[in-house]
Amino acid sequence: MPTPTLVLDFDGTVCLGDDPVRLYAQEVSRRVSAPWRERVLTGAEDFLAGRSRPGDAQDGYQAVHALGFAAGLDRASMSPAYLASRERLDAGEGEVGPPPGLGELLDDVRGAGVQTVLLTNAPGTGVFGWLDAVGLSDRLDAVITDAGKPATMLDLLGGLLTEADLECRPDRLLSIGDVWANDVGPALALGCTAFHIDRFDLHRGRSSRTATTFVELYGAVRDWAGRH
């Protein structure tokens, strides 16, 4: 039986707050040469404040990636920095929280027969414990970490469409996220519905619905769930 499916990103969508980006910037700054240490930290803050966009970044993590690469790090060096920041987050550092009313939204859509899936590039560290702590674990039917978006997103969404028997009705899968290339573009390419949380007003591409916060999209999510 076809099962409408809501696919949510984690950082910047379900989990809000800039401290995870700051923790990542701190870890990167510890791994670069002395002249770059303050530049990495300042560059991250400038991006979060909307004053700059290193490497045409779409979110804070991409901004820190760009700053680290500019400082001479490669991916092999950046990965331990990212994992260290997630371990600090998992240990309780940083202030993060879900958008107001998210639990109730998930209850409502699940009550309408929609399955809920969290699909994130983040590792399980810093995700599963946090979901438990804020009372969202039981409101999610599946959690997929280490997703590798955007390269894997078409395949991942295709798999979800098949599992939910939605291949003939891809519009009954709704993907929501704050990075257009990860969460919106691939979904639209498959005929799915896709909402973009465009916090920095970047206008990266078309979407089924766009807002600067997830909360502003709640009404549209409920409408979508009611139709499907």
Rank of each mutant, 00 (worst) to 15 (best):
L154P: 03
E27G: 07
W130M: 02
L83V: 10
L202K: 11
S175W: 01
G177D: 13
L83H: 14
F69A: 11
L140S: 09
G124P: 07
D178S: 15
A142L: 14
V21R: 04
T193C: 05
F10C: 11
P170A: 08
L73A: 09
I176Y: 00
G205N: 12
T152E: 14
A44Y: 05
R139N: 09
D107I: 03
L156F: 01
F195I: 11
L131V: 08
T213H: 11
L136D: 11
E163G: 06
P80R: 05
L157I: 12
P150C: 06
C168R: 03
A211G: 09
E27C: 08
T162D: 14
L174Q: 08
G148Q: 11
E95D: 14
A57E: 13
T13N: 06
R51C: 12
G158N: 10
C192G: 06
Q115Y: 00
G55H: 02
Q62T: 07
W130P: 03
L156R: 11
E167M: 05
L174K: 03
P2W: 01
R206I: 10
H203W: 02
G12M: 10
V215R: 11
N121C: 03
V7P: 00
P170C: 09
D108V: 07
G129P: 11
F69M: 06
G97R: 14
L102C: 09
L106E: 06
A187C: 06
L166I: 00
V7I: 06
C168S: 12
L105N: 09
G158Q: 03
R199K: 14
G97V: 05
S77P: 02
S137K: 13
E167Y: 01
L161Q: 04
D18C: 01
P20A: 10
M1C: 01
R51D: 13
S208K: 03
E167P: 01
T213Q: 08
L166D: 03
K149P: 02
L67N: 12
E45N: 12
R169V: 00
V143M: 05
A194N: 09
R53V: 08
S52N: 15
L136H: 06
G129K: 06
W224H: 11
F47S: 09
G97E: 14
G129S: 13
R169I: 00
V179R: 07
D108Y: 01
A112F: 07
I176H: 01
G72P: 06
A151E: 15
A122F: 01
G177I: 01
G111T: 10
A211H: 07
L136W: 02
L173G: 04
C192I: 04
G124W: 01
D171N: 02
T145R: 00
R53T: 13
P123Q: 07
T212Q: 15
A151R: 13
R30M: 13
I176Q: 04
V143G: 04
T212H: 12
A66G: 12
